[in-house]
Design a protein around this nucleic acid. Structure first.
Lengths: 90, 90
DNA sequence: TCTAAAAGTTAATTATAGTTTACTTATAGG
DNA sequence: CCTATAAGTAAACTATAATTAACTTTTAGA
């Protein structure tokens, strides 16, 4: 896992995704098959290329057990997001 | 602003975006012009349609002063993300 | 080393996101 | 009410994301 105590960009999101995948001992092809997303697309995602569909980002996050939270400038409420779109909880 | 103390989905991300935009007294066309993103695409985003590019989501978040944070299941580090890709801090 | 598996690249094609234009509801002031 | 502005929709077209298949390069064990 990369050190993410510092603030960051989509490049670090990519690093986080890759770090989680490798920590889970999964190959790109494993994820590719599980999510029906091609290997070139996964590589784009793990390189931090933002010209990918949000849907695919969410699928990957969900699969790896990652989620995220919106932060507003007026910093009072945070919102957790996962890739699970039809989950009644989310 | 919607109540986001509860956990949520991309639909709520959409709500958050729309809430922030209207709070800033901006019309869809205002944002559309500022970001060079078409009105239909903005509407897709504000309806929670995830079949949009991640790049466009990031542009909108950045413009509205929103950012987000990755959360791992093993919940120790969080990472802030904004749309600003070339900002050395992010 | 050798070699097998994983990572990464490339090019051609297909699928789909995004735009433009025009039109149709809503919403709020006057 | 009437009207102006914003929101939302639709269709045809363009731009680009995604796939497939084949290939090259790394990496880690035996």
């Amino acid at each position: 896992m990369p050190d993410l105590s510092e603030r960051f960009s989509s490049k670090l999101l990519a690093q986080e995704i890759m770090a989680k995948r490798t920590a889970m001992k999964l190959s790109l092809v494993d994820v590719s098959k599980a999510l029906s997303i091609s290997k070139p697309t996964l590589i784009k995602i793990e390189k931090g290329d933002t010209n990918v569909s949000f849907a695919n980002i969410l699928k990957v996050l969900e699969f790896l057990g990652l989620s995220f939270t919106i932060i507003s400038d007026d910093i009072n409420h945070q919102s957790n997001i996962t890739g699970a779109n039809d989950d009644p909880w989310f």
